[in-house]
Design a protein around this nucleic acid. Structure first.
Lengths: 216, 216
DNA sequence: CGCATTTTTGACCAAAAGGTCAAAAATTGG
DNA sequence: CCAATTTTTGACCTTTTGGTCAAAAATGCG
């Protein structure tokens, strides 16, 4: 009989068992939470398995190593991170386009703070696991969107602003409500930010960015 | 002879030996770097000691535990973080005050990115070591500064903006160049941000904030 | 039902890492 | 120069934790 890779859930992109679907999704969810709260080194597989309701050995059956699991979480995170950005369209009016983008990002911070934290953590530590991917995927996308902004500027639809720095500021201002939501809550004297806080945040950020760049 | 605490560098705030001064400073520097790059759990004492040019046992002689060392680094970080904020004065013109604040914060991001990263890391993970301190020290300070901003708004010197969110946005936009400088560099297609990048950042952030809040 | 495949897990292992300790080395003060 | 104090460190201990493995349990299928 041929020496073949047996065991281990399907290596190739072949269809997944129902059990695999459920368990992998559960593990990914649990991992996101534990990685978000403790970082890569701080995350403990035993704890992730516990959260997912399975044994550590079983977890390792689905994801061969901690690193592989972490990268799976990151991958998922990045993809959802990029979605709203791709929607920026040259045919839009800049004010409407950016308002939408900002509101979606802040809503994302509210709904998925853990994903944002995992992402932030990876970046703070120098993007050791995903730097290459960013170069190949994020950079070209931003370059493309920067050109759209330059087009808007040329058409006099907004003030001349460095498109790259504009993105950095928007990312920072919107994600801060997920990554550093704790600090914001402390400063506001509450245990957690409320939905109202996020709405106020969206209003404030939107106004400052639109007015600050002459879109309105 | 009385049972006394001997050994261990002076417990009380008593004067420090020259050797203590040098070694503690070296350790703190090394620790800042290692904690910034690896987070609390990820940081390895052996590595910090190595960077400081001493043995691990000697490091433990100066700081009794990893936690105590980490908190010492955090303490130092927070204090420098608060300094520029305290300078915000009601007697200033808002435009000048905020421009100065923003430029100082971005310069700080450029010069001390490691301190910013340690800080960011602590906040992302929920400020487990320094949350209480923030409640007692940061919150009152921000409350005070928020009142100054409200005064400026009442005097018609700037548009009505939620002062808290304004701070969150400024912190985010300025610190992003330290915490996520890697991402910014990747997007800009370079290995590291240059001094020019930071100057452009300061200009862009300043313009957007001042125009966005009607200060200019 | 009975055999093959997939899933699950308890028992282990080895490496990493925080922390202790006693003794040596260096420094200081008289 | 000598004794007391401070500083430094190698050796060691213990706990934690990522990962392995063989065997059992569950599932799927003809």
């Amino acid at each position: 009989m041929p020496v073949q890779a047996k065991k281990r859930p399907r290596e190739q992109g072949v269809s997944k068992t129902r059990i695999q679907q459920i368990n992998q999704a559960r593990i990914l969810d649990a991992a996101e939470e534990v990685f978000a709260h403790n970082g890569f080194r701080g995350a403990v597989l035993e704890r992730i398995a516990e959260r997912a309701g399975i044994s550590k050995a079983n977890l390792l059956y689905y994801f061969k190593s901690k690193k592989i699991l972490y990268e799976a979480v990151l991958q998922h995170t990045v993809e959802t991170w990029l979605v709203p950005l791709e929607a920026l369209d040259a045919a839009d009016e800049p004010a409407a386009a950016f308002e939408r983008y900002i509101r979606i990002k802040i809503e994302h911070s509210r709904i998925h703070p853990l994903a944002s934290k995992v992402w932030a953590n990876e970046l703070i530590h120098g993007a050791p696991h995903i730097g290459q991917y960013l170069k190949r995927r994020l950079k070209p996308l931003i370059d493309e969107k920067a050109r759209i902004i330059e087009g808007w500027i040329k058409q006099g639809k907004m003030a001349p602003v460095d498109p790259y720095h504009l993105f950095f500021i928007i990312w920072a201002a919107t994600q801060t409500y997920a990554d550093f939501g704790n600090q914001a809550a402390i400063v506001k004297g509450k245990a957690q930010l409320t939905k109202q806080d996020f709405e106020d945040a969206a209003d404030t950020v939107t106004t400052i960015i639109l007015k600050g760049t002459g879109m309105i």
